[in-house]
């Protein structure tokens, strides 16, 4: 095999996929914004993403907060600075772990479901049926999911932030001997609005990524049940990788401010 040809083929394949996803996203947003709108579909997706992800995201957040408190105690007790724990917990949660972990959990829960649902609709010709009924699948199926992802993940992250801080609080107060009022005061001492806002911006981007990958992979799935399974896997894997990549890039942007 000619190594140049192999490299070239891989490069073309990657560019085609990236271009395809970008075009799909733009097309979905532009057509969706132009309307007609399907408020019923948007609402349904918002409930699916926002409300039904609460238990998963909440559990993830509380354990993360608890672990954060324990681990940072182990570290900071060594140089006599356990007072830093509330600050570390709240900053880690709001800036980083809240959005990333919520994003990853939602990718597994919602992104997979979207890919499976749209993939099944594709292979059973329901997407073709939409077109014959004068309904644009990008407006009816894709746009409501993109919007719902973008709007609901920040709300989930806000809840995750609070629950995560509560997890840290519980461990610090009941296990590490912090005073409850002291802990809460210290939590807010160094917290700035920007910490929370940067996390929420991240969450909106991650929500968009999850919905986009779920829709893209589902919409373009082919070949029956096996194809839908493969699309579901691709949706979760690609969303997770993109979330971690975007997380670094967004942190870089916020860091330089």
């Amino acid at each position: 095999m000619n190594p140049l040809a192999v490299t070239g083929r891989a490069t073309i394949a990657v560019s085609r996929t990236v271009g395809g996803i970008a075009f799909f996203a733009l097309d979905g947003m532009i057509r969706g914004l132009r309307g007609p709108w399907y408020p019923r579909q948007i609402l349904r997706q918002m409930i699916e993403i926002g409300y039904y992800s609460l238990p998963v995201v909440g559990l993830t957040a509380i354990f993360t907060g608890m672990v954060l408190a324990l681990q940072s105690y182990t570290g900071f007790a060594r140089f006599e600075a356990p007072d830093a724990i509330p600050t570390i917990v709240v900053l880690s949660m709001t800036r980083e772990l809240g959005p990333v972990l919520a994003g990853l959990m939602v990718a597994g829960r919602v992104g997979a479901a979207m890919a499976a649902e749209l993939g099944t609709m594709r292979v059973t010709e329901q997407i073709d049926a939409l077109l014959t009924l004068a309904t644009d699948p990008l407006r009816y199926l894709v746009f409501p999911r993109l919007i719902a992802g973008m709007l609901m993940l920040p709300l989930l992250v806000l809840v995750a932030d609070v629950i995560g801080v509560m997890g840290g609080f519980l461990v610090s107060v009941y296990k590490l001997g912090f005073g409850p009022i002291e802990y809460i005061n210290r939590t807010f001492d160094f917290l700035e609005a920007q910490d929370v806002i940067s996390g929420l911006v991240k969450a909106a981007v991650f929500g968009f990524i999850v919905a986009l990958m779920g829709c893209y992979q589902g919409y373009h799935s082919r070949g029956g049940a096996q194809g839908v399974g493969a699309a579901t896997t691709r949706a979760v894997v690609s969303a997770s990788i993109l979330i971690l990549t975007a997380d670094y890039m967004l942190t870089e942007i916020f860091f330089s401010r």
Binding site: R31, R122, V123, L138, Y219, S221
Partner: peptide, 13 residues
């Protein structure tokens, strides 16, 4: 037939 079932159509109207 296989190709048809799996082939994505053009996006929309």
């Amino acid at each position: 037939d296989r190709a048809v079932r799996g082939e994505p159509s053009r996006h929309g109207p």
